[in-house]
Amino acid sequence: MTDFQNPILPRMAYITNIIDETSDTKTFKVEFEGGGKGDFLHEPGQCAMLSIPGVGEAMISITSSPTFKDFLEFTIKRVGRLTTVIHQLEVGDQIGIRGPYGNNFPYKLLEGKDILFIAGGFALAPLRSLINYVLDDEHRKDYGKVDIIYGARSVDDLCFKRELFENWPKKKDTQIFTTIDRPEEGWDGHVAFVPTYLEELQPSPENKYALTCGPPIMIKFVLQNLQKLGYQDDHVITTLEMRMKCGIGKCGRCNIGSKYVCLDGPVFFLDQLKQLPQEY
């Protein structure tokens, strides 16, 4: 039946839990038949093609850390036909999966360094795999201080609230800076756009890598501000998104110059990004 040698043929897995993150974003826990993630072993930052046969397929970042041994997690925003159908799925329903695809965050290179994560809205999802990897009890000692600057339009738009407000702040040498775009009743936290908050906090670039994911306009100003703060281009890491169909470097639509985002990305250092044509 299912040919595991065929990379564009999905395997059918099961949804074992669903968490409502925001009004339009849900996190799906996925396991293969009989439980667990089998031989589907990924690195932080990698993606997978999720699909519903008869509806379509899309590249989604794997938000769970490889240190979560028994399942995969995908945080999916409702934007089109496929994601709308996925949002209607229930626990016990099947979903097609193939992968893992793409490169990953350079977690080995980050060992011994401080890490600054900067994310906006739903785009905390790809960074979360690395955050949970770094904060995992087994790996925490390998890394320095972890700062997370995370913002969203409103409180409702903040994802992973439980980790954000309960789990992560308890970790050693870990600070969380959460912000929302506009004041809101019942919110006594910070109010500012992410790039502005970054400017206010002035995190030192000393012995530190910055990783950022978010909407293009946020990325643009975050990168500018990191530069002002003295971060070198080879110490700033981000991810790119392009339309994809095959995910394995053949269908030809996610190229930026000679690079395929599906194979050579999604993770790029800023200095690599500056070598690419501005066609993304």
Partner: peptide, 17 residues
């Protein structure tokens, strides 16, 4: 060699990619 991938379902119960 560029290609597109699309799903077609004749009913909710069968179809093809």
């Amino acid at each position: 060699h560029c290609f597109d991938i699309n799903d077609y379902a004749r009913s909710g119960l069968e179809g093809e990619r």
